[in-house]
Amino acid sequence: MPDHRDLAPVEILLVEDNPGDVRLTEEALKEGKVRATLSVARDGEEALAWLRRAGRKLPDLILLDLNLPRKDGREVLREIKADPHLKSIPVVVLTTSDAEQDITQAYALHANCYITKPVDLEQFIQVIRAIDDFWLTLVKLPRKE
């Protein structure tokens, strides 16, 4: 099994409507020294359209916010996990909410993990780095086509 990193930067799809958060994630990746190509979708429909575009190389990881305009994160999650082509992509729900019902619902929709965004920047950088370490280095994932 080849390590993605030896070949090319990993592909991450960030689904996030808040430009501040998008930038913060980019900065956190930078601060965390993570080599990754970040694609951004600003709402749920854009994310699904992006994933389903013909000939698209699928991302290694999806970072998904729950509260999105037009089509929210829960529906995006449901559709990804119902799509045979997309369902094996790890989806990390990254949101500000720590409400019990959001956590329960996300896992019920087969989210691969649920992370509440920390307020503290250092902690956020730690989180991004940990995601990278765990999902893109440690975990064995099925080979992509």
Partner: peptide
């Protein structure tokens, strides 16, 4: 709040 805090920290 997180935006304020994070960017001030950054």
């Amino acid at each position: 709040l997180r935006m304020v805090a994070s960017y001030v920290q950054l």
